[in-house]
Design a binder for these strands. Structure first.
Length: 270
DNA sequence: AAATTCTCCTGAAGGC
DNA sequence: TGCCTTCAGGAGAATT
């Protein structure tokens, strides 16, 4: 499932192939994503040159001359650079046909989205309320500490709240909490400043490390040109329920916290 | 305001 | 082997 490292891996993978190219055709096979894809894009996009490929949170931003195409991969989405004559799969909903290659959007569960935004992209309603980028200077333990005071919400849900910080999904929240020894169900308002300093640092380390390894391949995640990610090999908690904790040997527990599966060590995480 | 529940969807996994 | 049920899961919307 694409989290920030997977989205960044995708961005880095597709950018060199499509940046600077002019779009020839926007082929929309299935507009029924999380929100309906605007069919006017079929007329709007062709002829425009792609200036750059950016990212905000888990949103990919294709900066064209007249605006941004904002793409979210949802749960199961992927973007691949393919040949024009490559076979179209069942869940290949959109093709961006450039001069020299095709950018293909696939999303079996259709939880993703595609929006066209003219004007200031940061003011778009999906981006306007987002918290800081986790790998930026603007994100640190102080931010987490300040925003969490008096909050009863579980610390795991707190760091997964996109208004607090973007890009921390279930996998990396689970890992960062395990590595810092914080129990995921602990009330956010009761976590100390010192522990938030460590948590923020660990979130940065875990995300940066995952980007370096090309993301985490679970099920069928692949990068922009089809390669697998290797971070799954380093997961210490996520997906290891029942297996021994690497630090103390206790069997890892799994518990639903806010509708999400959470794996943790009841001995090491307090 | 903050917290919780609901919703979209389909592939994968488990049960029998 | 195969059909049926359950579940995962990002994140905005609706509800309490």
């Amino acid at each position: 499932m694409p989290e920030l490292p997977e989205v960044e891996t995708t961005r880095l993978g597709i950018m060199p192939h499509i940046q600077g190219q002019r779009l020839r055709e926007f082929e929309l096979r299935c507009a029924k994503l999380r929100w309906p894809v605007d069919s006017a894009l079929i007329d709007i996009l062709p002829g425009q040159k792609l200036k750059s490929v950016l990212r905000r949170g888990k949103y990919l931003l294709l900066a064209f001359e007249a605006g941004h195409l904002m793409i979210h991969l949802g749960m199961s989405g992927s973007l691949r650079v393919v040949d024009g004559d490559s076979e179209v799969g069942k869940h290949d909903h959109v093709d961006l046909i450039f001069e020299h290659c095709v950018l293909r959007y696939r999303d079996p569960r259709r939880f993703g989205s595609i929006h066209w935004v003219e004007g200031d992209i940061e003011e778009h309603w999906l981006l306007a309320k987002l918290g800081p980028e986790p790998l930026s200077e603007g994100f640190d333990g102080g931010v987490l500490y300040k925003r969490s005071r008096k909050r009863q919400i579980a610390v795991k849900n707190f760091i997964m709240d996109t208004q607090v910080v973007v890009g921390v999904g279930n996998i990396y929240a689970t890992e960062a909490l395990f590595k810092t020894g914080i129990a995921p169900q602990k009330a956010a308002g009761k976590v100390s400043r010192a522990r938030y300093d460590r948590l923020a640092e660990e979130i940065k380390v875990v995300l940066a490390s995952a980007i370096t390894r090309g993301g985490t391949t679970l099920r069928d995640f692949v990068g922009g040109t089809g390669e697998q990610g290797y971070f799954a090999l380093e997961l210490l908690a996520y997906g290891r329920a029942g297996e021994p904790c690497v630090q103390c040997g206790t069997a890892l527990k799994t518990e639903k916290i806010g509708q999400r599966a959470s794996v943790y060590c009841s001995k090491c995480q307090t």
